[in-house]
Every structure is written in structure tokens, then in C-alpha cells.
Amino acid sequence: LAALHAEGPLAGLPVTRSDARVLIFNEWEERKKSEPWLRLDMSDKAIFRRYPHLR
């Protein structure tokens, strides 16, 4: 499970980098069924690119 911001401008976004990794992994797991070539990237760089508020 990932903790998400409940309200405000960040509502629905992950609270920590660990939470972001959970979301990225879950999405990758779903997408790899139809796109088996996808690589999993959970590096800090990938997290910041996707969720800049975690910098």
C-alpha cells in the first residue's frame, strides 16, 4: 500500500519516495501484461521525473 496526500494541491500523489516506488511498481506490473518489453525503473531520477514534488 502507498500513502497518498489526502487533500490540497498534492491530493492523490505519493507522500514519500517509497510510496512512489509502490505506485510505479503496481503500474508496471499491470502494463507488462500488454507491453512485456517494458523495463521497471524505480530510480530516484525516474521518481523525480514523475513526481517532482518529492525532490
Score class of each variant (00 low, 15 high):
residue 35 E to I: 06
residue 53 H to A: 01
residue 8 G to I: 04
residue 27 E to M: 07
residue 42 M to I: 14
residue 5 H to N: 08
residue 15 V to K: 12
residue 44 D to M: 10
residue 41 D to L: 03
residue 39 R to S: 12
residue 29 E to N: 15
residue 33 K to W: 09
residue 46 A to P: 02
residue 13 L to W: 06
residue 24 I to M: 13
residue 41 D to N: 07
residue 25 F to P: 00
residue 28 W to S: 01
residue 32 K to W: 08
residue 16 T to G: 08
residue 8 G to F: 05
residue 49 R to F: 12
residue 23 L to V: 10
residue 48 F to K: 08
residue 5 H to K: 09
residue 49 R to L: 15
residue 30 E to S: 12
residue 37 W to H: 14
residue 43 S to L: 03
residue 10 L to M: 08
residue 6 A to M: 13
residue 51 Y to A: 00
residue 23 L to I: 12
residue 3 A to T: 14
residue 52 P to T: 02
residue 7 E to L: 08
residue 2 A to D: 05
residue 27 E to W: 06
residue 34 S to F: 12
residue 39 R to I: 14
residue 46 A to I: 09
residue 13 L to C: 09
residue 16 T to M: 05
residue 17 R to Y: 11
residue 34 S to Q: 12
residue 20 A to Q: 00
residue 50 R to P: 01
residue 2 A to T: 07
residue 18 S to R: 15
residue 10 L to V: 04
residue 11 A to M: 12
residue 7 E to S: 13
residue 21 R to E: 09
residue 8 G to H: 05
residue 3 A to Y: 12
residue 50 R to E: 08
residue 19 D to T: 03
residue 19 D to G: 06
residue 8 G to T: 03
residue 40 L to N: 02
residue 50 R to S: 08
residue 39 R to A: 13
residue 22 V to H: 09
residue 5 H to F: 14
residue 46 A to L: 08
residue 21 R to Q: 10
residue 24 I to H: 01
residue 44 D to N: 12
residue 22 V to G: 03
residue 50 R to M: 09
residue 20 A to V: 01
residue 10 L to N: 09
residue 42 M to S: 05
residue 15 V to R: 11
residue 19 D to I: 03
residue 23 L to D: 07
residue 40 L to H: 01
residue 28 W to E: 02
residue 23 L to P: 00
residue 29 E to A: 14
residue 22 V to Q: 12
residue 53 H to E: 01
residue 46 A to F: 12
residue 22 V to N: 08
residue 1 L to F: 13
residue 29 E to C: 14
residue 16 T to H: 08
residue 17 R to C: 13
residue 33 K to M: 10
residue 8 G to K: 06
residue 1 L to A: 14
residue 21 R to L: 10
residue 12 G to D: 04
residue 7 E to N: 12
residue 55 R to N: 11
residue 54 L to H: 00
residue 4 L to A: 05
residue 37 W to A: 09
residue 6 A to L: 13
residue 44 D to H: 07
residue 54 L to E: 00
residue 47 I to H: 01
residue 47 I to C: 02
residue 6 A to P: 11
residue 38 L to E: 07
residue 54 L to M: 04
residue 20 A to W: 01
residue 26 N to I: 14
residue 36 P to F: 06
residue 15 V to D: 02
residue 31 R to Q: 08
residue 33 K to I: 11
residue 44 D to L: 14
residue 40 L to S: 01
residue 5 H to D: 04
residue 30 E to Y: 10
residue 18 S to P: 05
residue 14 P to I: 01
residue 25 F to R: 11
residue 45 K to I: 09
residue 39 R to L: 11
residue 8 G to Y: 04
residue 3 A to F: 11
residue 22 V to T: 11
residue 1 L to W: 08
residue 3 A to D: 11
residue 54 L to S: 00
residue 31 R to Y: 04
residue 45 K to Y: 12
residue 5 H to P: 04
residue 35 E to W: 08
residue 25 F to T: 05
residue 27 E to L: 07
residue 4 L to T: 10
residue 35 E to D: 11
residue 33 K to G: 09
residue 3 A to C: 15
residue 54 L to A: 00
residue 43 S to I: 03
residue 38 L to I: 10
residue 33 K to V: 13
residue 14 P to Y: 00
residue 39 R to V: 15
residue 35 E to S: 06
residue 26 N to F: 12
residue 2 A to R: 05
residue 53 H to L: 01
residue 53 H to V: 01
residue 27 E to Y: 05
residue 51 Y to G: 00
residue 15 V to M: 13
residue 16 T to Q: 07
residue 51 Y to S: 00
residue 32 K to A: 10
residue 1 L to Y: 12
residue 35 E to G: 03
residue 7 E to Y: 11
residue 37 W to Q: 12
residue 51 Y to R: 00
residue 6 A to Q: 15
residue 4 L to H: 05
residue 39 R to K: 15
residue 32 K to Q: 09
residue 54 L to N: 00
residue 12 G to I: 03
residue 21 R to I: 09
residue 33 K to E: 10
residue 15 V to G: 03
residue 36 P to K: 07
residue 18 S to Q: 15
residue 8 G to N: 04
residue 15 V to Y: 04
residue 19 D to K: 02
residue 31 R to I: 05
residue 12 G to N: 07
residue 23 L to H: 03
residue 7 E to K: 10
residue 12 G to L: 04
residue 13 L to M: 09
residue 2 A to G: 08
residue 2 A to Y: 07
residue 53 H to D: 01
residue 9 P to T: 08
residue 8 G to V: 04
residue 11 A to D: 06
residue 12 G to S: 06
residue 17 R to T: 13
residue 23 L to S: 03
residue 27 E to C: 06
residue 45 K to G: 11
residue 50 R to V: 09
residue 28 W to F: 09
residue 15 V to P: 02
residue 48 F to A: 10
residue 48 F to T: 11
residue 55 R to Y: 12
residue 8 G to Q: 05
residue 48 F to H: 10
residue 38 L to N: 05
residue 23 L to R: 03
residue 41 D to V: 04
residue 9 P to M: 08
residue 2 A to M: 07
residue 53 H to F: 02
residue 10 L to C: 10
residue 49 R to I: 15
residue 37 W to T: 13
residue 18 S to D: 14
residue 43 S to M: 02
residue 32 K to F: 09
residue 39 R to H: 12
residue 16 T to E: 07
residue 48 F to V: 14
residue 54 L to D: 00
residue 40 L to E: 02
residue 54 L to R: 00
residue 19 D to L: 02
residue 42 M to C: 13
residue 29 E to W: 15
residue 28 W to H: 06
residue 6 A to K: 15
residue 13 L to R: 03
residue 9 P to F: 08
residue 25 F to E: 05
residue 23 L to A: 05
residue 51 Y to W: 15
residue 13 L to E: 05
residue 40 L to C: 07
residue 53 H to Q: 02
residue 39 R to M: 13
residue 3 A to Q: 15
residue 19 D to W: 03
residue 30 E to W: 12
residue 15 V to F: 06
residue 18 S to T: 12
residue 5 H to A: 04
residue 49 R to G: 13
residue 24 I to A: 02
residue 30 E to A: 11
residue 31 R to G: 06
residue 9 P to Y: 08
residue 34 S to A: 12
residue 6 A to T: 14
residue 46 A to T: 10
residue 35 E to C: 11
residue 28 W to T: 01
residue 30 E to L: 11
residue 38 L to C: 08
residue 42 M to Q: 08
residue 45 K to L: 12
residue 40 L to F: 05
residue 12 G to W: 04
residue 17 R to A: 14
residue 22 V to Y: 10
residue 50 R to F: 06
residue 27 E to Q: 07
residue 6 A to D: 10
residue 20 A to I: 01
residue 5 H to E: 04
residue 28 W to C: 03
residue 52 P to R: 02
residue 33 K to C: 10
residue 26 N to Q: 14
residue 45 K to S: 14
residue 46 A to Q: 08
residue 54 L to I: 03
residue 3 A to S: 13
residue 12 G to K: 06
residue 37 W to P: 04
residue 8 G to S: 04
residue 8 G to W: 05
residue 44 D to F: 07
residue 4 L to I: 11
residue 28 W to Y: 11
residue 4 L to R: 08
residue 44 D to W: 09
residue 14 P to A: 01
residue 12 G to H: 05
residue 55 R to I: 14
residue 4 L to K: 07
residue 26 N to C: 15
residue 49 R to T: 14
residue 26 N to R: 14
residue 12 G to F: 04
residue 16 T to R: 09
residue 26 N to Y: 12
residue 41 D to K: 03
residue 26 N to A: 13
residue 37 W to L: 12
residue 35 E to F: 09
residue 26 N to S: 11
residue 38 L to D: 05
residue 33 K to L: 11
residue 49 R to C: 14
residue 40 L to M: 04
residue 20 A to H: 00
residue 51 Y to T: 00
residue 5 H to V: 05
residue 14 P to K: 01
residue 53 H to M: 01
residue 15 V to Q: 08
residue 9 P to R: 07
residue 31 R to H: 07
residue 49 R to M: 14
residue 6 A to V: 13
